[in-house]
Design a protein around this nucleic acid. Structure first.
Lengths: 165, 165
DNA sequence: TCCTTTTCTTGACTCGCTCAAGACAAGCGC
DNA sequence: GCGCTTGTCTTGAGCGAGTCAAGAAAAGGA
């Protein structure tokens, strides 16, 4: 176990979790790729632990989320993504075209960073903010396509319709 | 066809869609129940059109969303919900316990009503805000359970963990 | 009324995820 | 270092939401 794995092992024990190879593999993948989905995590973790099963990944991720080591985000129309960045209060930018996700720092800092104008009797503990748009790579690609063939509709980027918010 | 259906028929034609019984049935259910999922819509619409197929409902809803008649919302961990309220700029309150959804007016009004502090090269066109919490009914039920048996953890309400936003 | 085009029905299928049972291994006490 | 307890992982089945494709049916203009 190298220095990084020792740190992770310590973090797992701190959270009351046992230190196992599947867990270290998943941590390694998550550290490499923030915002990975379960499938990506499985593929990556299998490079370190070839016999790893999909169910083990789901179990590990659930344990991480419960222990506060990882955070689960679920953009509409996409499988759940997982990230190690927890504890701070940040939001996400999601590309409508390729699904790329980027972090945005919250200007307020503490959760919930927003309060609804009228809570309709709800006790609100979290405000989840997702910014939908087009990432730089997809903008560039669109420009190239538009230059090559004039009559191109930008409409096709809509993963979903809906009013803005 | 009654007066309400005539209005809907007009709205469908305005949007360039043909007027069909499945579409009128779905509109009727959506008018009755804002924030209904595809299954609920199917069940409701079958009261008016018994032979309606699930795929027809998906097709109708997709056509409505594309035409701007309906809006699709997808709270994390729940099937997609549909609502007729479009065009204005509002957000949603979601109950972690029972999944109930309520509308909240946006104080800003125009989309996107928020701008990320650093857009990381993204062109943002929409900010989606979901407030997570506990609805009044679930709060009441919890209080009753807590009164009946003292040592009750409120933890079990978490549909998902994760840091606040 | 006919004809074209859109829409709906039928049926098979994919994907993301969950559940259950038994095998396995981490880590504690000795 | 060894055995035991208990949490974790593997194996395999299954579920719900949603998609895809092809042919039948119906809307609506000529």
């Amino acid at each position: 176990m190298d220095a990084v794995e020792t740190t992770w092992a310590h973090q797992l024990r701190e959270a009351g979790l046992r230190v196992t190879r599947p867990r270290l593999s998943v941590l390694s993948v998550l550290a490499d790729r923030p915002h990975a989905d379960a499938g990506t995590i499985l593929t990556g973790a299998r490079e370190l632990h070839p016999s790893l099963s999909p169910q083990a990944v789901y179990g590990v991720l659930e344990a991480f989320v419960a222990a506060g080591i990882a955070r689960r985000i679920e953009p509409a129309g996409a499988p759940a993504l997982f990230e190690l960045r927890v504890g701070d209060n940040h939001h996400h930018l999601v590309c409508r075209s390729c699904g790329a996700v980027a972090d945005v720092d919250c200007v307020v800092g503490a959760a919930p960073c927003l309060a609804p104008s009228d809570a309709a009797g709800f006790v609100v503990d979290e405000a989840e903010v997702v910014f939908w748009g087009l990432c730089r790579a997809c903008q560039d690609r669109d420009r190239q396509v538009a230059d090559a063939a004039e009559p191109v509709q930008l409409e096709e980027h809509g993963i979903r319709g809906g009013a803005g918010a």
